[in-house]
Amino acid sequence: MGTAETLTQAPHTKAARTSLRKRKNKEETNLAGYIFIAPWLIGFLLLTLWPIAQSFYLSFTEYSLLEAPVWTGTDNYANIFRNDDTFTKSLSVTFIFVLISVPLKLFFSLLVAMALSKNIRGMNVYRTAIYFPSLIGGSIAVAALWRNMFGLEGYVNQVLSWFGIQGVGWITNPDTALGTLILLNTWQFGSTMVIFLAGLKQIPQELYESASVDGAGRFRKFVSITLPMLSPVMFFNLVLGVIGSFQTFTSAFIITKGGPINSTYVYALFLYEKAFKHYQMGYASALAWILLVIVAVLTALNFLASRYWVFYESDGGRAK
């Protein structure tokens, strides 16, 4: 939690430094601040807080959903850490997924966003075509499609056979199944790409023009203009990528069902099955809160690190 504090501290101290405003002014912005965040705050207090608190309470109970919860203290947590091999397995599967897919997707979507940010004729059609796979994300068709691509008799193996390589059943081989899910996740880079695109377009063209006058090359412009100006958006994509990937669910749910032999049994799928298939909502809630702590710590680290590389125009140019 301290992290967001540090995020907001920079402008705060700066404001204090630049002018010693009157106390009255401060109270006014206090009020204004709460007025502006009111829609979220009201929603949070009315709709979100109660279910969250409930799930925290339920994590200390045995709760089948079909019967009232029974208080069991810290049993769920103790069992998770002591006796549950599946917990360890699914957590490590998820870590691998996050570690590979987040950087891969960031890199790929930035690359594509840069290619698509040019103003040439027909660009909107290209953009739409390239965004298309991200639209079919949760669709039923995607499972059938992925089997067509990566099955034993799939297109990938057909292409490989031209080179005399004998492929495997990529989705059903325990060593490669997770890889295909990571690939699918990367293929659906559309939303990350769009956010990069919007970020790229927010960079004032004048900066590039004056850099050109100074004789800067493309690489130089990328490093000294694009990257720093894009860093808030990149930071957003990174943080959200980490949060989202830890909860990755749909592709494993519809394509592999966590198999073969748990090799794609990602954490969110494990949690879902505990809650709705095995009637152990209490246990699932404990799992969820453990995940929350893990992701919160990682996000906190992300925010701490951001001070060294994320550049906010509003902070007067230099992030500290």
């Binding site: 059938a144 089997r147 099955g151 034993l152 059943g169 059903t172 198999g259 073969p260």
Partner: peptide, 15 residues
């Protein structure tokens, strides 16, 4: 083989 069996999906036209 297991790798092939794991891809089976009953009543799916392809699998």
């Amino acid at each position: 083989p297991a790798e092939q069996a794991a891809a089976f999906l009953e009543n799916d036209p392809q699998a």
